[in-house]
Write a protein that binds this DNA or RNA. Structure first.
Lengths: 246, 246
DNA sequence: ACAAAAGTGTTTAATATACACCCATGT
DNA sequence: ACATGGGTGTATATTAAACACTTTTGT
């Protein structure tokens, strides 16, 4: 028993990943379109996830799922909650799908929620590196998802919001070189607030971990913006920073 | 298989509870002294916890553990993280203990961490309602615990700290009627900061959800302090409150 | 020349900080 | 009478908020 337990997938614990992306069009989430045996309606989406293996840590499991999906290793990854409602698998088509892929489809599964942040340059929405079934969906357009995945998504976004207030994780959603406008848009979107441009820029320019490059935007039909990067070293030094923009 | 899975304890998922209490002496944690078969050293402590049942939600499991321990139902309870290191059970005496109580002592166990907050009037440190083996230990005096329980404890306190900054959960650690000094002490302790008394009181008195009772401290050898209570109604109304005292 | 977004300062209001003495009670 | 913690106000510095025009580029 103990030997067999240590091999392969654990039937009772999974990870599910809310993968966020951000670009001009706003906040996006990476969803999996699943093959549903007899799917009468339109598409059927869920969050990427899998049962954990008995020899891997939770973070490793989430990493594995994301690596398979995006071909990117070590994405920014943050565990945010566990979901264990005994009825979280209750819809008939969810059950059917489980029966089609799981060894023990009726097992009670507790899932650990992670959110991942991807930089725009790393998410080629239809690049070959991405799993064919993965699809970016604007946050506002996310449909009803399988299982309790809408709940997990909401909870993940709430956690990200919270985290962005006190740690510089937002930069994981921006290109390595970004404009202050992009940073402002990101905070406005995730936090759901409007920010005064001049006040924002003044505040932000006092932060030593934002370093101006000697490089500007190119090919835009307006005054090209200064590019900045996030310096993690300067951040660690300075410390005390708050990320209460707005 | 699916039937047997639905009965009794799930071998792979547990909950562990960090139970906080607060009084004049500071922050305290409720620990379980465990019977260790051959415990050569002194006492051996762990956090209260148990495997979950297959028919209960995670919160229910945590509630059950706490009810058994304290005889109090519906303590303030907050899930804060999942711990799944495959080696979280690694010490020989931890393994021995598992073998003495678990049906499947070698199963991989992922545990969900909860913190609970108890009001001083509810924790009679040695009241009959409390499990004999439960013991309040000052946070600073917490010894090395079983499994990864020190990690869980630190992580729980960090989450509480975070939570107390944005939600009025601290009141769960205070008596129903409390003085402003007690509130200040609580925030100073948990946040690890010193707060100026006059500034603190000014700020706090502007908060409508703190209502002064027409009652004062009794039997103290100094000017008796005004008693206050927390009004959840006023809180819900006002909203916008920050709990960034300090 | 026009459209589109970048960039820039000042004034005013609100909030945070620093700080010292008298008061009510129990012993 | 003394020890103990409760209670109070003001002045100054810092931070937040509101607000409009000029600049640079592509078409």
């Amino acid at each position: 028993m103990s030997e067999s337990q240590n091999l392969g997938l654990n039937p009772n614990v999974s990870v599910d990943c809310v993968v966020f992306g951000f670009d001009k069009a706003g906040l996006k989430v990476l969803l999996i379109e699943r093959d549903n045996p007899d799917n009468t309606e339109g598409k059927n989406y869920q969050l990427p996830g899998d049962l954990i293996r008995n020899d891997e840590d939770l973070d490793e499991a989430a990493n594995r799922v994301l690596k398979e999906l995006t071909n990117i290793d070590n994405l920014f990854l943050q565990q945010f909650a566990a979901f264990g409602n005994p009825l979280r698998v209750k819809r008939e088509n969810d059950l059917e799908w489980l029966r089609s892929i799981r060894k023990d489809p009726d097992a009670r599964v507790v899932t650990i929620g992670y959110y991942a942040l991807i930089k725009p340059e790393d998410f080629a929405p239809s690049a070959s590196s991405f799993a064919r079934k993965a699809e970016w969906v604007r946050y506002e357009d996310v449909p009803e998802l399988a299982f309790d995945h809408n709940l997990i998504l909401e909870s993940g976004l709430a956690s990200l919001k919270q985290k962005m207030r006190s740690e510089p994780v937002g930069f994981e959603l921006l290109p390595a070189k970004f404009t202050l406008r992009q940073l402002q848009n990101l905070y406005e979107t995730v936090m759901g607030v409007e920010i005064d441009k001049r006040n924002f820029r003044r505040k932000v320019q006092g932060m030593k971990f934002l370093v101006a490059l000697d490089e500007k935007q190119k090919g835009v039909a307006h005054k090209p913006a200064q590019l900045y990067r996030f310096s993690n070293n300067n951040y660690k030094d300075s410390f005390s920073a708050t990320f209460d923009f707005a």
